[in-house]
Amino acid sequence: MDISSIFYAIITMGVLGFVFSAGLSIASKKLSVKEDPRITKIIDLLPGANCGACGYAGCAAMAEALVSGKAEPANCPVANSENLSKIAEILGLEVTEKERKVAVVLCQGDTNNQKKKAEYLGVQTCLAAHLVGGGPRACNWGCIGYGDCIRACPFDAIHMSENGLPVVDREKCTGCGKCVEACPRNIIELHPISRHVFVLCKNRDNPKLARSVCKTACISCGICERATGGKGFKVINNLAEVDYDLYTKEPVLPTDKCPTKCIVIVGNPGET
């Protein structure tokens, strides 16, 4: 190889390089689309589960919404507070600490407690059973037991007990609400982790009917309401409800007084 070919090579590549880079830099100016660099940073901080709990199509969509000010970091129920505050920092927002929510299954109607109504022979999902005949168990309000909530959980935080009742792992639960959506009977609700007293029943049938389908149904006897002097429990439409606003921190828990044991303490006081 002689000097001239090296020379030609350098010249050629130089010219080519110059022509194309000039073209590109002009094009990049003419055709540039402004993209907020914060979006990628925020995507990195979001959990990336694309669970949709924030109401957007996924973490990337959420990031865009955050940058455009349509959403707040707190709308993501899944991300940990550290990342949320980092996102807030990027956005220049103050983030308010919010209490973690977890899912609670408001039913105790497993196969021991709930009566069996009939043999169900259709598609083995709660929703399908709910829409056709109501599934094999007798209570029209309670758990069907085919585990739609379990399949819906993106965090593996809900499992089926031996007797066919979903159990929430309160540590793993992020409060994304997928199970709440999945349950056709609406027996799963999100509650702040500091709440421990629950009426684990959703049956609004008359007491006779309720008792006939499930051992642990609320029979709206009103003992809980009387025991707390109306400050804590109220029976509305055949069902006792906890009034969390009025509920004092150290209540006289009527758990032992409830004749069907449907008032229960869930979780350990003090957990976060």
Partner: peptide, 13 residues
């Protein structure tokens, strides 16, 4: 006799 929830053929009481 009563007016209350009762079983309904279409499912929910």
């Amino acid at each position: 006799k009563t007016i209350d929830t009762f079983l309904h053929p279409l499912g929910l009481s």
